[in-house]
Design a protein around this nucleic acid. Structure first.
Lengths: 224, 224
DNA sequence: CACTGTGAACTTATTCACAGCT
DNA sequence: AGCTGTGAATAAGTTCACAGTG
């Protein structure tokens, strides 16, 4: 199978697979079947095989998938095997600071290379080895460096204009922590992280006076 | 239409609608059509009407939806009109502290009422007006109080056992920041917040040497 | 007349089921 | 024998299109 446009929902599952394969590799595991991998991830084996089939034939019949090899393949498909992915961060309030301090990005091969804010009290200060620059200088910076990923950690009101700046500067993948719907042009990818919305939607299921016919949908992903 | 099990994906969109209606109310807007609401949210009008139709007939033909009324209706469907939703927080590292300090939960009607960790250096200390308790005391606490929501902000290795404790204690909605697939019994709802995974999947779309046939999928939600 | 509410049509995603390889 | 890879079948989700109503 080949040359069809690959569904985004499939793309979003690849990091899940890659990560679990990383754990398996750490356990010294050499091969794994779609069956067992699916069990560990709460995904059906057929789903895994179908997803992988969009990209090629990676398994050995009778044996399963070679753990390290498949992980490398997936990371390569995602474009994660090159050097560290550089990101700009806009907003250094509570949230922005947490983002800067969070080791997970670095560990995952992502690095904040420049930090911006609009608050004169913040501009020029140092946070975690980063000098905070005026967001007004963001366009020039992007023009110069062509960084293609950005993280938005500003208040809701400020988010649309910040996102516009990033898009205009050529940033094509944006992770936004602002709880606001913003639309972006085709070819630009925006993902929102919105814990309050997650809680709000889960609250629905708490309504049931007693449990019983409550719908489940486990670790899934995709929004997640 | 009535009495079919309502799809989770529909439930997840309700907070999005409710929030935008809140903004509209703030702007003094009285009525809004599915058309215009959809435009603001990047959702089709038909989708909005269909989603709402699962719960009743809230619109006035020829006029649209009454902004404040619909918002109330949606919040009530989600169970958000009662008093503040109480949550326990497990883990007070970098991430847990950010969660505690984040005003968005309070503003959204969610409140961390008790904080746990397993690190002896943390236990007993005060963070943001909360005394940090030993996670070993979590089961007893849950038995006593029947808090039904929890936030997990512990390292990946610790997450499964913490989640088990929460589930055993009757917590039915869990927001986890641990980048790990964990399965939970039916009737328990677990949502993961995993920014690194979002970045990893977006990285795929950066591959294209030049843009053009890049798939878009805009603000969607759910996480997403 | 401008909208909603909703079956029907369509599209997308998942699962089944099995031939085929190792 | 035990698995993958994949068309075909099914299920889930979205959009269409229009009758009906305030």
């Amino acid at each position: 199978m080949n040359e069809t446009e690959i569904p985004d929902i499939v793309i979003r599952r690849l990091p899940l697979y890659a990560r679990e394969l990383g754990l398996l590799a750490g356990e010294g595991r050499e091969f794994i079947s779609s069956q067992e991998l699916g069990q560990r991830l709460g995904v059906t084996p057929a789903q895994i095989r179908k997803d992988l089939s969009y990209f090629g034939r990676f398994g050995k019949r009778g044996r399963g998938y070679e753990v390290v090899g498949l992980r490398e393949r997936l990371r390569s498909i995602l474009g994660l095997n090159g050097r560290v992915k550089e990101m700009v961060l806009v907003g250094v309030g509570q949230l922005g600071r947490a983002v800067l301090g969070y080791g997970g990005f670095r560990r995952g091969g992502f690095e904040v290379v420049r930090v911006f804010d609009s608050d004169p009290k913040q501009i020029g200060s140092m946070i975690d080895n980063h000098r905070v620059d005026d967001v007004a200088s963001l366009p020039k910076y992007l023009e110069r460096t062509r960084v293609s990923m950005g993280i938005v950690a500003v208040p809701a009101e400020a988010a649309p204009s910040v996102i516009d700046l990033l898009v205009a500067g050529g940033v094509r993948a944006i992770l936004s922590y602002a709880p606001i719907a913003t639309s972006v042009p085709r070819g630009v990818h925006l993902r929102r992280i919105d814990p309050v919305m997650e809680l709000e939607s889960m609250a629905y299921y708490l309504e049931e006076p007693f449990d019983g016919y409550v719908e489940d949908h486990q670790s899934d992903m995709t929004s997640r």
